[in-house]
Amino acid sequence: MLTDIMQVLVLGSVEGAVYMLIAVGYSLVYGTGGIMNLAHGAFYLIAGYMLYWYLGTLGLFTSVVLALIIVTLIGGISYLALIKPLEKKSQLSVVMVTFAIAFFIEQIVKLGCSILGFEKESTLPNLIEIKGTVSFELFGTIIPYDYVFILIISFLIVSLITLFISKSKLGTSIRAISQDREAATLMGINADRVLMFTVMISAFLAGVAAVIYVPSYPIAPWQGWVILTNSFAVVILGGMGSLPGSVLGAFILSYASHFTRVFIDPAISTLVPMFVIVVMLALRPQGILGKKEID
């Protein structure tokens, strides 16, 4: 029994680490610009699919780099061309346009699959293989090397992002905008440009999550929405706009979901994120580590 709990902890930790990457980006954009980016799951989706599409011809390294660059650009372009012009009109139109971006990307993915023959390259190789084995055993628990890699990369990247936000000039201006956008513009900070960078960073993070996780957990076009609802649940739980909250929320939610699916019922486990969203909004809308109000 203990090994099974261990095994579920391993699975939960890996998914938690991936959702940490996804939710930190989501939270960053919300915290800085108040933008509810419904296309965030779609960023994950397109990065994952690009890996499939490129892998056959370009090799792993080039595919990963290209996928990350393109998804980051998609983030920037989405902001500049669609979100920014609507931002001054109303919050609702921003939400609507990100919704539209998400659907658009989903259709692009479907189109890409039918043109490029998705299933031909549908199984990605292991990222790491050591001496002909893909996993090792620890006290009877099977741990794929890829999982260890996913954990290391996610924590490394989240630490770097934290460092960047707390140390660099751009990072400080991101925090300044998140606290008082109007005052920040009075300092000569171009809030639109900084916001574009945050959307790009968040797309990049979603892209990293996709390229490290998709080899272990393949995707389907609809999956963008599942990623979105789950990361939404993570930030609601951890606190909108709070990065440590996103880290905390990602792990809590992932463990909760995995323990539920294994020991209670898989059907209930898919309800866990929805349950968290509803309960948290009712009891503590600001989340565990969020500020008093969402604004």
Binding site: Q7, L11, R261, V262, T270
Partner: peptide, 17 residues
């Protein structure tokens, strides 16, 4: 509207529980 996590959840439960 395929939700992949549903199948993954089922597999995890079948194997580990």
């Amino acid at each position: 509207a395929l939700d992949l996590s549903r199948g993954v959840a089922a597999a995890e439960r079948m194997i580990y529980y």
